[in-house]
Design a protein around this nucleic acid. Sequence first.
DNA 1: AACATGACAGGTC
DNA 2: CGACCTGCCATGT
Length: 106
Amino acid sequence: MKLKNSSNKYYKIWEVVDDIPYGKVATYGQVARMAGFPSHARLAGYALHHLPEGSSFPWFRVVNSQGRISFPKNTPMYKQQKKLLEKEKIVFINDRVDMKKYQWKK
DNA sequence: AACATGACAGGTC
DNA sequence: CGACCTGCCATGT
């Protein structure tokens, strides 16, 4: 992965993601805004896709604006993320989490 | 440089 | 609720 000059840009995003507390979730757009890149939700998604190796970031606490997991249903990643979230007492209803209840507010 | 793609979001119809 | 469309931006070919 390219983390030489772009690492700075992604760093803020990873930093924000790392701040999401247990049992809470944040949206890609929210993470981007908090990192200082308003309306750059895609960048957040891209940054997560290219996480540093061996990183133990709570990437699974990031879902899309609809409270849905941004992976096609029934893919390994989808299941893994859902499992990790449920382990934090987050409840899924129709493959979606209640953002009113679980969205992280800072 | 041009074009396509992607772990997005907000709006319209 | 779904099907599009538009704005965004980094990457890869």
